[in-house]
Design a protein around this nucleic acid. Structure first.
Lengths: 360, 360
DNA sequence: ATCGGTGACTATATCGTTATAGAAACTCCT
DNA sequence: AGGAGTTTCTATAACGATATAGTCACCGAT
């Protein structure tokens, strides 16, 4: 208690201290702790009293070692902007709630996608003997997934629609969502729609199937269905940031003054697009309609309020944890895809409400 | 590998397996792992090869047990809305970055403030032998702090300006921030300012000094400095949510049509206030000016863009971790308060820019 | 008196590491 | 040749818990 030079550890009583103080064996204390029910009320009472007095807490470390279970789940988020994307944050909420409920611990790891030391991060997970890994965001490399799979540690991908060698994943229906967004714009009469992508595809940060790929597919499907060809000169890259999208869209609007709409694959980029429209002296939605993707909270705060595709972030997090726990209890389980609905939320930025009120 | 019924643990090779396969003793493998430098190059090579082949990862659990260190920090967030408040999210970003850098693990725990089982949550921390605890949000009870202090586990409070029996904490300068916000409104000529508080004070959820108390102090200071009395009938409760603030402010605006400004102690509530103003047929900032607190990202997205007090969330998280690590290495350290600057960010919702352009 | 059963408790091995203290084989010096 | 010093490796006891397999009294039935 006095000259405990060893840092990082408050010297706490162990099961042995309790046993000694209560005048019983270590086994007896253990039996009390685990409620074996073969200890007399009298002895049990004495043991509990001593535990209380000495402020004893059994070491989860030691317990886990002998139980060969860590009760730890790992959330690994790879992102360029850190945890900054509000959507990930919503997912994280759902995850914590569900992990807590299941009696597990959640270790949170946020890595920069551009950081080449992801192997080290994985190694730490293996060393910590985490019982499951959740992968979210933009993976630094397809090898991440291969490694995790090879490790045999149960894993689920969140918001990464991986179609190749099967893995369990949870995403929104990105294809349908993007299709709906595009169809909505087309139905409002738009033909020249600027498409704001995340990163360059296939690019340095995204050698894997990503939500971006899926959304692009849905978008092109909608165009095709209406006989509109995909025009690459309407494509720009917003890097998932507001400022990135703002400058990209501004440049694009100057090049293509005939564009009357913007579809950004994230709300944050849609906000940037709205700013870009104003930068060029035009108005949203009168001159240029804007639609986003995610339906983060801020989407309803902005003016005009953003029309977007609603993703159920919290539910996504919860589902991911449930799936992971299922794999943990039954490792032979074959991979399963959970695809959550992605619905169109019509607000003001697309001009639909204005139009409908004109019609009325 | 085949009939491993035991779930939650992929049977992995242990140091013993490596030793056997490499034909050396367990000690030798340990020495290789820890780079004692007393193993011949030849032997070391062989051992490393075997480790590679068998996919060996030393168990952090066992290591920590013998090292008597857990290398785990715990973030405990108490909130009514879960992790939903965007500001906490920014803080969390800073925390993860710094924890990672220090070679620790971060366990994330989010508890509902209204949940009475917080003792159990704390017990879990003690059992996990976490080396430090970060407390954030609205504590369920003052006893939480007392318990944590009594436990002897190093702890810092984040965004909880605790003034009583000294604890290390990190917050923004809430008093100065609120004072600046109020003074700004007063300088623009406002006299009847609606004050949107978080929870009822002193209420069920907040029996402790909170940021809300501090902000209220700064607000009243500003009023007093300008000879304006605090009018309790201008006070309302927004519960830190957008909808809560919206309905509270709407009701208040109807009761007090003479109010020309709103100061909400969080941006999210300020967004609700802006909606409330519009609900009553008035405009922001022409009829009613609105100022918030936090400067979350969305503050710059909304229209009119929100004038607010900027808090450095990410820095707050980083500082908290640094302080915690300092306490861990030197437990005798006396508690320290870190108060980060809270600056006024003038945007559109207060009408200052309009006014200054009129003057120009 | 012997036996079986039960209630209350305990001794010891084990989990997968590291720390401590040696041991065995060389090399070098005188 | 004998000892000191190196180099390389190892045996064993921790760390703090649980699991397994007891032991020992005592009670009632035969």
């Amino acid at each position: 208690m006095s000259d405990d030079v060893q840092s990082g550890w408050v010297q706490r009583p162990t099961i042995r201290d309790i046993a000694r103080a209560a005048g019983v064996s270590v086994s007896t204390v253990s039996h009390v702790l685990n409620e074996y029910g073969d200890i007399s009320a009298q002895t049990e009472h004495r043991v509990r009293e001593v535990m209380e007095q000495l402020n004893y807490y059994p070491s989860a470390l030691a317990r886990r070692l002998v139980a060969k279970r860590s009760y730890v789940l790992q959330l690994l988020l790879f992102a360029v902007e850190g945890l900054h994307h509000p959507f990930f944050y919503e997912v994280t909420c759902g995850i914590t709630a569900e992990v807590e409920k299941a009696g597990y611990e959640l270790v949170l790891g946020v890595k920069d996608t551009r950081d080449r030391r992801w192997r080290e991060t994985l190694r730490r997970c293996y060393e910590a003997k985490v019982e499951g890994i959740m992968l979210m965001g933009t993976l630094p490399s397809a090898k991440v997934l291969a490694e995790v799979r090879a490790s045999g540690v149960p894993a689920v991908m969140i918001d990464i629609p991986f179609e190749g060698p099967r893995v369990t994943y949870v995403t929104s229906d990105n294809i349908a969502g993007a299709r709906r967004a595009a169809e909505h714009l087309i139905s409002l009469g738009h033909r020249n729609i600027i498409y704001v992508d995340g990163y360059d595809q296939p690019g340095e940060y995204a050698p894997l199937p990503t939500i971006a790929v899926a959304r692009r597919i849905g978008y092109e499907e909608a165009l095709r269905a209406h006989g509109i060809g995909f025009d690459p000169s309407l494509l720009c890259i917003g890097n998932y940031t507001q400022e990135g999208a703002r400058s990209a869209v501004r440049a694009k609007l100057e090049l293509r003054p005939d564009a009357t709409a913007v579809f950004a694959i994230s709300d944050v980029m849609a906000f940037g697009a709205m700013k870009a429209v104003r930068d060029t002296g035009r108005r949203v939605p009168t001159d240029v309609a804007v639609v986003g993707f995610d339906d983060i909270e801020a989407a309803s705060y902005v003016r005009p309020a953003l029309t977007t595709i609603k993703q159920q972030g919290e539910l996504m997090g919860r589902s991911a944890v449930c799936e992971l726990l299922r794999i943990i209890t039954n490792p032979k389980r074959s991979p399963k895809a959970t695809v959550l609905p992605a619905e169109l939320v019509v607000r003001e930025s697309c001009g639909a409400s204005r139009l409908s009120s004109q019609l009325a």
